[in-house]
Amino acid sequence: MKLAVLQQKEQVTLVTLALGSQTLAISADLLREILDPLPVTRVPGAGAFVPHVVNVRGSVVPLANLKIALGIPDAEADERSRILVLEIPLDGEPALVAIQADAVYEVATIETGAMERLPDTASIWPPEYLIGLYKGADGFVLLPDLPAIFSAQTAQAAAA
């Protein structure tokens, strides 16, 4: 998704969460539920990005680690960690995907005018996976492009 698409609306509702020391914001439209940590099942050979599946109310849902895709260093998980269940288009079909978060902060409405493209220089994050960023209370908040991140993974999985 391009920032321009997001900026067609004046305001968007976002969920902010922590990954390591970084704060991310995800569109609240994608969010289905927030769960306490669940027992996970390892999928052998699945790679580091989507290493597990979890049981979400009777559905088997892949559990992704966005830190791998975004190159964010790992941090010790504590009692604040959560699982976010999202519905994301995968190859044109909506699919349930869970992501790990080290903490979930708040649901906030943000003016899209305050959002910016990623600076071309000085970016330590993969630009193709980020829509942009904005300045929050405690520093920059990243807007990950989840459809792009997961589509790249399905393409890789299909090719394997």
Binding site: A46, V50, V53, P62, L90, T154, A157
Partner: peptide, 19 residues
């Protein structure tokens, strides 16, 4: 039998999952 996600399409040794 529950289908595996497309994200795991590359895992050939697994055909599905169950609860």
């Amino acid at each position: 039998i529950k289908q595996m996600s497309k994200l795991h399409a590359g895992v050939r040794a697994v055909s599905g999952a169950t609860i």
